[in-house]
């Protein structure tokens, strides 16, 4: 599970561009704060390396471990 905090994300695209597995795509529409949020479209590719989360300048991304 990847959670994007709508209130914190400023839409800088760093996660989208630097994810090694191309998990994210920018959304097609602006949210109410005027931001194109990243959408984890290829979630099945995610290796949970947390690179996006540590790069995110706004602490907007939470990558949750799968509980089996």
């Amino acid at each position: 599970m990847i959670k994007i905090d709508q209130n914190l994300c400023k839409g800088c695209d760093i996660c989208t561009e630097f994810c090694r597995k191309n998990v994210y795509e920018p959304s097609k529409t602006l949210n109410r704060k005027g931001v194109y949020l990243p959408v984890p479209v290829n979630i099945e590719e995610c290796k949970k390396c947390n690179l996006c989360a540590i790069l995110c300048p706004d602490l907007a991304i939470t990558v949750e471990e799968d509980h089996e």
Partner: peptide, 12 residues
């Protein structure tokens, strides 16, 4: 901080 500013990454 502005969108994309490196400061947040430094905090992390």
């Amino acid at each position: 901080f502005c969108a994309g500013c490196g400061n947040g990454t430094v905090i992390n």
